[in-house]
Amino acid sequence: MEMAAPLYWLISSLWTLLAIASQFHTYHIPSAVSNHSSTAQFTSAASGLDAPKIHPVNSSAFDWWYFDVVASDPNSLASVVAIFYTTTANAFPFFPPSDSVTFVQITGTFENGTTFGTIVNADGATVRSDDNASSGDWHNSGFSWTHTRDSAYTIVIDAPDIGRICGPSIGWANAVPDAVATVQLTVGGADLAFEGLGYHDKNWSDQIFTANLKSWYWGHGRLGTYSIVWFDFLALDGAEYVSAYASEHGKIIAASCVPTSIQVRPTGANSTYPPVRSTGNPSGYHITLDLSEAGKLEMDVSVTGIAMDNVLSEYTRAVGNITGTVVAVGGHNNRHAEAVLEGKALFEQFKMTD
C-alpha cells in the first residue's frame, strides 16, 4: 500500500478542480540526470496544475506532458499523440538509455491505420506555468507547446516533414478532458489532416513507474452529448484505484476517484482480467460510469485500430468507437431511452506482470 499511495494521489489530483489563482512560474530543466534526491508535488499549489511536479529529475523520477487528438469520424483511424518527457529509462523503462532526460515522442496513425512515430532528444527544457495552464519548449528538438488566454493549446513541431497540431480547449483547468482539435501534418511526404477530439494531461512520480503498477486502463472519448475520461488501475498488491470524469454540454457532471465511480473491464477476445504480459489485446472494454442522481452511463468500447504496440508487450494504445446508454437510478433509461449514444475514443492499457 505504501508503494501504491503516491500513484493514487497522482490520479486523484488530476480531477481536483483548483480554486486558487496561480502566478507566473518559469522552470528550467537540465537535460542531464541529477544525482540528488527528487521531491514530488502531489498536492495543489500556487504554481498551478500543469507546472513541473518533480525537482530535480533523478534516475527514479518521471514527469510528462501528454497531448493527443483522435479523429471524430467513426470510419477514420487517424490519431496523433505528442508526449514531452522528463525522465530516464530507469524510471520509465519503455525507452532505450539516453544521456538526455528531456525528450519528445510523437506517434500517430493515418486514416487507414498506418502508424508512424519518432523520438527526439532535447538540450534541456523550459516550462512556464500560468493560471493552471502552461507553455513548454524542449530546446533544439523542434517541439514546443503554448497556451493562450483564449484557452487554446498549440503544439508546434518545427522539424523536417512535420507540421503543426493545434486545438482550442473546451475542457476544464489545464487537465483538458475534451477539446475541439485540428491536425495538419506532413509525415514522410504524406499529409495527415483531420478534425477530432483533443486531450491533455500530465503524469509524474518520484518513484520508478514499475514499482507501483500491475495494470491500468485509461482512455477518453465523446459519445452523444457526453465527454468522458476513465482510469482504472491495479497496484502491485492487487488494490484497485479509479478516476472518473464526465461532462455534458461542457458542464462537469462527474469527477471522482471514489472506488464505485467507475469500472473498466476488457471484453471479447483476450478479456482475461487482470491482464498479464501474455494476454493479447482485448476486442473492447465495458465501462460503467456513475453519474450520481442521473444514473449510470453504460458503455461499450470496440477496438477499431491499434495506434501503438511496438514498444514492449506491456503497452498498447488503440482507437475505437463507443456506444452507450444512460440507465437511471432504479434501472430504467432516462431521457435518452431507446436511443443508443455513439462516439469515438482513444485509449491504452499497461500490463506489467506475468
Rank of each mutant, 00 (worst) to 15 (best):
G108P: 03
G171D: 03
I29D: 05
I170M: 11
V276C: 14
G305N: 13
N333E: 14
Y315D: 04
A89D: 05
W15T: 01
N121T: 13
V340W: 08
A193H: 10
K53F: 04
S302W: 07
N334G: 04
L77M: 15
Q41I: 01
T316S: 01
E195S: 09
P30M: 00
H55N: 15
Q105E: 05
M352S: 06
E338P: 02
V70S: 11
T316Q: 10
N132R: 10
G113E: 14
W138V: 06
G268H: 12
T325R: 09
R277K: 15
H332A: 01
V329N: 13
P96Y: 10
S313T: 03
L346H: 08
F95Q: 07
S278R: 13
D150N: 02
H200Q: 12
V258P: 05
T43L: 11
A122S: 14
S100R: 14
S98N: 14
R149H: 11
S271T: 11
W65G: 00
L7P: 00
W65S: 04
Q184I: 05
R317D: 05
F103T: 02
F231T: 12
K344T: 12
Y315F: 03
K202E: 00
Y285E: 11
T288P: 00
D290A: 08
C166I: 13
N270R: 04
A45K: 03
S261V: 00
H332T: 06
F95W: 13
G331T: 10
T102Q: 09
L236V: 07
I228A: 13
I252T: 10
G320Q: 08
V81A: 15
Q207R: 15
K351F: 03
S34Q: 11
C257Q: 07
